[in-house]
Protein backbone atom coordinates (compact mmCIF):
# COMPACT_ATOMS: atom_id res chain seq x y z
CA UNK A 1 0.00 0.00 0.00
CA UNK A 2 1.27 3.45 -0.92
CA UNK A 3 -0.11 6.95 -0.46
CA UNK A 4 -0.08 9.25 -3.49
CA UNK A 5 -0.26 13.04 -3.45
CA UNK A 6 -3.99 13.17 -4.13
CA UNK A 7 -4.73 10.79 -1.26
CA UNK A 8 -2.37 12.71 1.03
CA UNK A 9 -4.11 15.98 0.12
CA UNK A 10 -7.54 14.49 0.84
CA UNK A 11 -6.31 13.32 4.23
CA UNK A 12 -5.01 16.84 4.82
CA UNK A 13 -8.41 18.30 3.99
CA UNK A 14 -10.15 16.03 6.50
CA UNK A 15 -7.53 17.01 9.09
CA UNK A 16 -8.68 20.65 8.71
CA UNK A 17 -12.26 19.61 9.44
CA UNK A 18 -11.65 17.83 12.74
CA UNK A 19 -9.45 18.47 15.79
CA UNK A 20 -10.57 20.48 18.79
CA UNK A 21 -10.91 23.80 17.07
CA UNK A 22 -12.04 22.76 13.67
CA UNK A 23 -13.64 23.99 10.51
CA UNK A 24 -16.61 21.62 10.49
CA UNK A 25 -17.85 22.61 13.94
CA UNK A 26 -17.59 20.73 17.21
CA UNK A 27 -20.41 18.25 16.77
CA UNK A 28 -19.63 17.29 13.18
CA UNK A 29 -15.92 18.03 13.08
CA UNK A 30 -14.41 17.08 16.40
CA UNK A 31 -16.98 14.60 17.67
CA UNK A 32 -17.76 12.87 14.36
CA UNK A 33 -15.07 13.26 11.69
CA UNK A 34 -12.34 13.40 14.34
CA UNK A 35 -13.25 10.16 16.15
CA UNK A 36 -10.79 7.42 15.16
CA UNK A 37 -13.62 5.01 14.31
CA UNK A 38 -15.04 7.45 11.76
CA UNK A 39 -11.50 8.41 10.72
CA UNK A 40 -10.87 4.73 10.03
CA UNK A 41 -13.84 4.66 7.66
CA UNK A 42 -12.74 7.85 5.87
CA UNK A 43 -9.10 6.70 5.60
CA UNK A 44 -10.30 3.30 4.44
CA UNK A 45 -12.30 4.90 1.63
CA UNK A 46 -9.46 7.25 0.63
CA UNK A 47 -6.80 4.54 0.66
CA UNK A 48 -9.06 1.91 -0.84
CA UNK A 49 -9.15 -0.64 1.98
CA UNK A 50 -12.19 -0.10 4.17
CA UNK A 51 -11.71 -3.29 6.14
CA UNK A 52 -8.18 -2.36 7.19
CA UNK A 53 -9.23 1.24 7.83
CA UNK A 54 -12.03 0.19 10.17
CA UNK A 55 -9.75 -2.30 11.94
CA UNK A 56 -7.21 0.48 12.63
CA UNK A 57 -10.00 2.89 13.59
CA UNK A 58 -11.44 0.42 16.09
CA UNK A 59 -8.02 -0.18 17.64
CA UNK A 60 -7.30 3.51 18.09
CA UNK A 61 -10.81 4.37 19.17
CA UNK A 62 -10.29 2.11 22.16
CA UNK A 63 -7.33 4.17 23.32
CA UNK A 64 -9.23 7.43 22.90
CA UNK A 65 -12.72 6.37 23.88
CA UNK A 66 -12.85 9.05 26.57
CA UNK A 67 -11.11 12.02 25.10
CA UNK A 68 -12.23 14.74 27.48
CA UNK A 69 -10.65 18.15 26.98
CA UNK A 70 -11.32 20.12 30.15
CA UNK A 71 -10.62 23.81 29.72
CA UNK A 72 -9.20 23.33 26.25
CA UNK A 73 -6.16 21.32 27.33
CA UNK A 74 -5.53 18.30 25.17
CA UNK A 75 -3.36 15.26 25.77
CA UNK A 76 -3.81 13.96 22.25
CA UNK A 77 -4.86 15.47 18.95
CA UNK A 78 -7.64 13.73 17.04
CA UNK A 79 -6.56 15.16 13.68
CA UNK A 80 -3.14 13.55 14.09
CA UNK A 81 -4.57 10.26 15.39
CA UNK A 82 -7.23 9.88 12.72
CA UNK A 83 -5.66 11.36 9.60
CA UNK A 84 -1.91 10.84 10.16
CA UNK A 85 -1.80 7.90 12.58
CA UNK A 86 -4.40 5.68 10.93
CA UNK A 87 -3.03 6.02 7.34
CA UNK A 88 0.52 5.30 8.55
CA UNK A 89 -0.68 2.35 10.62
CA UNK A 90 -2.53 1.02 7.56
CA UNK A 91 0.65 1.22 5.48
CA UNK A 92 2.69 -0.38 8.28
CA UNK A 93 0.24 -3.25 8.72
CA UNK A 94 -0.02 -4.02 5.04
CA UNK A 95 3.74 -3.77 4.50
CA UNK A 96 4.39 -6.08 7.46
CA UNK A 97 1.97 -8.51 5.88
CA UNK A 98 -0.13 -8.78 9.04
CA UNK A 99 -3.71 -10.01 9.02
CA UNK A 100 -5.68 -6.72 9.16
CA UNK A 101 -8.25 -8.17 11.54
CA UNK A 102 -5.76 -9.81 13.87
CA UNK A 103 -4.67 -8.71 17.32
CA UNK A 104 -1.10 -7.96 16.28
CA UNK A 105 -2.30 -5.56 13.59
CA UNK A 106 -4.50 -3.80 16.14
CA UNK A 107 -1.64 -3.53 18.65
CA UNK A 108 0.64 -2.04 16.01
CA UNK A 109 -2.07 0.47 15.08
CA UNK A 110 -2.46 1.53 18.71
CA UNK A 111 1.26 2.12 19.16
CA UNK A 112 1.63 4.12 15.94
CA UNK A 113 -1.58 6.08 16.53
CA UNK A 114 -0.81 6.97 20.13
CA UNK A 115 2.68 8.14 19.31
CA UNK A 116 1.45 10.31 16.44
CA UNK A 117 -1.52 11.56 18.46
CA UNK A 118 0.62 12.64 21.39
CA UNK A 119 3.18 14.42 19.23
CA UNK A 120 0.29 15.90 17.23
CA UNK A 121 -0.81 18.10 20.15
CA UNK A 122 1.81 20.50 18.76
CA UNK A 123 -0.56 21.09 15.82
CA UNK A 124 -3.43 21.87 18.17
CA UNK A 125 -1.49 24.57 19.99
CA UNK A 126 -0.06 25.92 16.73
CA UNK A 127 -3.54 26.45 15.23
CA UNK A 128 -4.80 28.02 18.45
CA UNK A 129 -1.83 30.38 18.53
CA UNK A 130 -2.18 31.42 14.93
CA UNK A 131 -5.89 32.13 15.49
CA UNK A 132 -4.77 34.94 17.78
CA UNK A 133 -3.84 36.86 14.62
CA UNK A 134 -7.39 36.66 13.28
CA UNK A 135 -8.78 37.49 16.70
CA UNK A 136 -6.67 40.64 16.84
CA UNK A 137 -8.33 41.63 13.55
CA UNK A 138 -11.63 40.89 15.26
CA UNK A 139 -10.92 43.15 18.22
CA UNK A 140 -10.10 46.01 15.89
CA UNK A 141 -13.34 45.41 14.00
CA UNK A 142 -15.32 45.49 17.25
CA UNK A 143 -13.64 48.73 18.33
CA UNK A 144 -14.24 50.35 14.96
CA UNK A 145 -17.77 49.04 14.77
CA UNK A 146 -17.21 46.93 11.65
CA UNK A 147 -19.48 44.19 12.92
CA UNK A 148 -20.07 42.70 9.48
CA UNK A 149 -16.47 41.52 9.43
CA UNK A 150 -16.87 39.36 12.55
CA UNK A 151 -18.27 36.27 10.78
CA UNK A 152 -15.16 36.20 8.58
CA UNK A 153 -12.97 36.26 11.69
CA UNK A 154 -14.81 33.27 13.09
CA UNK A 155 -15.53 31.23 9.97
CA UNK A 156 -13.10 32.19 7.21
CA UNK A 157 -9.65 33.23 8.46
CA UNK A 158 -9.06 30.15 10.67
CA UNK A 159 -8.91 28.18 7.41
CA UNK A 160 -5.49 29.78 6.92
CA UNK A 161 -4.32 28.44 10.30
CA UNK A 162 -5.54 25.01 9.29
CA UNK A 163 -4.00 25.20 5.83
CA UNK A 164 -0.60 25.72 7.45
CA UNK A 165 -0.88 23.55 10.56
CA UNK A 166 -3.40 20.86 9.56
CA UNK A 167 -3.35 20.45 5.80
CA UNK A 168 0.38 20.73 5.09
CA UNK A 169 1.69 18.59 7.99
CA UNK A 170 -0.88 15.88 7.31
CA UNK A 171 -0.21 15.81 3.57
CA UNK A 172 3.58 15.75 3.97
CA UNK A 173 3.67 13.30 6.89
CA UNK A 174 1.35 10.79 5.25
CA UNK A 175 3.13 11.03 1.88
CA UNK A 176 6.69 10.75 3.15
CA UNK A 177 5.80 8.83 6.31
CA UNK A 178 4.47 5.94 4.27
CA UNK A 179 7.92 5.45 2.77
CA UNK A 180 9.59 5.74 6.17
CA UNK A 181 7.21 3.22 7.74
CA UNK A 182 8.11 0.72 5.04
CA UNK A 183 11.83 1.29 5.65
CA UNK A 184 11.21 0.56 9.33
CA UNK A 185 10.16 -2.96 8.42
CA UNK A 186 13.72 -3.84 7.50
CA UNK A 187 15.29 -1.87 10.34
CA UNK A 188 13.34 -3.53 13.15
CA UNK A 189 12.85 -7.29 12.97
CA UNK A 190 9.48 -8.51 14.22
CA UNK A 191 10.94 -10.97 16.72
CA UNK A 192 13.28 -8.37 18.20
CA UNK A 193 12.75 -6.92 21.62
CA UNK A 194 11.82 -3.45 20.30
CA UNK A 195 8.90 -4.72 18.26
CA UNK A 196 7.78 -7.07 21.02
CA UNK A 197 7.69 -4.13 23.43
CA UNK A 198 5.88 -1.98 20.89
CA UNK A 199 3.17 -4.56 20.40
CA UNK A 200 2.83 -5.29 24.12
CA UNK A 201 2.41 -1.58 24.85
CA UNK A 202 -0.13 -1.34 22.04
CA UNK A 203 -2.20 -3.99 23.73
CA UNK A 204 -2.18 -2.08 27.02
CA UNK A 205 -2.74 1.48 25.78
CA UNK A 206 -6.56 1.28 25.80
CA UNK A 207 -6.28 0.71 29.57
CA UNK A 208 -5.02 4.30 29.84
CA UNK A 209 -8.01 5.58 27.85
CA UNK A 210 -10.44 3.63 30.02
CA UNK A 211 -8.61 4.78 33.15
CA UNK A 212 -9.01 8.42 32.09
CA UNK A 213 -12.73 7.77 31.83
CA UNK A 214 -12.77 6.03 35.22
CA UNK A 215 -11.12 9.07 36.74
CA UNK A 216 -14.18 11.00 35.57
CA UNK A 217 -16.82 8.65 36.88
CA UNK A 218 -15.29 7.14 40.00
CA UNK A 219 -15.60 9.31 43.10
CA UNK A 220 -15.77 6.61 45.71
CA UNK A 221 -14.75 2.92 45.76
CA UNK A 222 -18.28 1.62 45.17
CA UNK A 223 -18.37 3.46 41.84
CA UNK A 224 -16.11 0.70 40.53
CA UNK A 225 -18.90 -1.85 40.92
CA UNK A 226 -21.02 -1.00 37.84
CA UNK A 227 -17.82 -0.86 35.80
CA UNK A 228 -16.76 -4.31 37.03
CA UNK A 229 -20.27 -5.68 36.49
CA UNK A 230 -20.10 -4.49 32.88
CA UNK A 231 -16.66 -6.08 32.53
CA UNK A 232 -17.90 -9.36 33.99
CA UNK A 233 -20.96 -9.47 31.72
CA UNK A 234 -18.63 -9.30 28.72
CA UNK A 235 -15.61 -11.27 29.96
CA UNK A 236 -17.36 -14.09 31.79
CA UNK A 237 -20.86 -14.18 30.29
CA UNK A 238 -19.76 -13.08 26.80
CA UNK A 239 -22.63 -10.65 26.28
CA UNK A 240 -22.20 -8.14 23.47
CA UNK A 241 -22.31 -4.39 24.04
CA UNK A 242 -25.89 -3.80 23.00
CA UNK A 243 -26.99 -6.47 25.48
CA UNK A 244 -24.88 -4.91 28.22
CA UNK A 245 -26.43 -1.52 27.48
CA UNK A 246 -29.90 -2.97 27.87
CA UNK A 247 -29.02 -4.65 31.17
CA UNK A 248 -27.52 -1.38 32.38
CA UNK A 249 -30.73 0.50 31.55
CA UNK A 250 -32.49 -1.52 34.22
CA UNK A 251 -30.02 -0.30 36.82
CA UNK A 252 -30.30 3.24 35.45
CA UNK A 253 -34.06 3.25 35.97
CA UNK A 254 -33.64 1.92 39.52
CA UNK A 255 -31.00 4.55 40.37
CA UNK A 256 -33.19 7.30 38.97
CA UNK A 257 -36.19 6.23 41.04
CA UNK A 258 -34.08 5.91 44.19
CA UNK A 259 -32.45 9.31 43.68
CA UNK A 260 -35.79 10.97 43.10
CA UNK A 261 -37.35 9.30 46.14
CA UNK A 262 -34.38 10.02 48.38
CA UNK A 263 -34.75 13.79 48.67
CA UNK A 264 -38.54 13.94 48.64
CA UNK A 265 -38.79 13.05 52.34
CA UNK A 266 -36.15 15.53 53.44
CA UNK A 267 -36.88 18.62 51.40
CA UNK A 268 -40.07 18.60 49.38
CA UNK A 269 -39.18 21.84 47.59
CA UNK A 270 -37.12 20.73 44.64
CA UNK A 271 -37.24 23.60 42.20
CA UNK A 272 -34.35 25.93 42.86
CA UNK A 273 -33.51 29.22 41.25
CA UNK A 274 -30.38 29.65 39.22
CA UNK A 275 -28.85 31.67 42.03
CA UNK A 276 -28.41 28.48 44.06
CA UNK A 277 -27.00 26.47 41.19
CA UNK A 278 -23.67 25.82 42.86
CA UNK A 279 -25.14 25.05 46.27
CA UNK A 280 -27.55 22.65 44.70
CA UNK A 281 -24.80 20.79 42.90
CA UNK A 282 -22.66 20.36 45.98
CA UNK A 283 -25.67 19.19 47.97
CA UNK A 284 -26.14 16.38 45.53
CA UNK A 285 -22.61 15.22 46.11
CA UNK A 286 -23.12 15.20 49.84
CA UNK A 287 -26.26 13.16 49.55
CA UNK A 288 -24.34 10.49 47.78
CA UNK A 289 -22.01 9.82 50.68
Amino acid sequence: MTINWLQAALLGFFACLCSNSCMAGQAVGNYTIGRPLVGGLVCGIILGDIKLGIACGVAMQLVYIALVTPGGTVSADVRAISYIGIPLAMVAISSQGLNPLGNTAADLAKSVGTLVGTVGTVLYYAVATMNLVWQSFGWKDVQKGNLDKLPAVNFLWPWVSHAIFSFLPTMLLTYYGATAVKALRNALPMDGIAMKTLFTVGGMLPCVGIAILLRQIVNKPTDFIPFLVGFTLAASLHLNLVSITIVSLLFAVLIYEIEMAKGSNKNPVTATGSSSVNDDDSNDDEEDI
Binding site: V58, L62, I65, A66, G203, M204, P206, C207, I210, L213, L214, I217, D223, P226, F227, L228, V229, G230, F231, T232, L233, A234, A235, L239, N240, L241, I244, T245, V247, S248, L249, F251, A252, V253, I255, Y256, E259, D288
Partner: peptide, 19 residues
Protein backbone atom coordinates in the same frame (compact mmCIF):
# COMPACT_ATOMS: atom_id res chain seq x y z
CA UNK B 1 -26.34 9.44 38.06
CA UNK B 2 -28.59 7.06 36.14
CA UNK B 3 -26.79 7.73 32.84
CA UNK B 4 -23.51 7.39 34.70
CA UNK B 5 -24.41 3.80 35.59
CA UNK B 6 -25.06 3.00 31.94
CA UNK B 7 -21.76 4.62 31.02
CA UNK B 8 -19.77 2.69 33.63
CA UNK B 9 -21.24 -0.67 32.63
CA UNK B 10 -20.78 -0.08 28.91
CA UNK B 11 -17.19 1.01 29.44
CA UNK B 12 -16.55 -2.12 31.50
CA UNK B 13 -18.00 -4.11 28.62
CA UNK B 14 -15.85 -2.27 26.08
CA UNK B 15 -12.74 -3.05 28.10
CA UNK B 16 -13.57 -6.75 28.37
CA UNK B 17 -14.62 -7.10 24.72
CA UNK B 18 -11.73 -5.32 23.07
CA UNK B 19 -8.76 -5.26 25.39
Amino acid sequence: RAIGIVGSMVVGGVLASWV
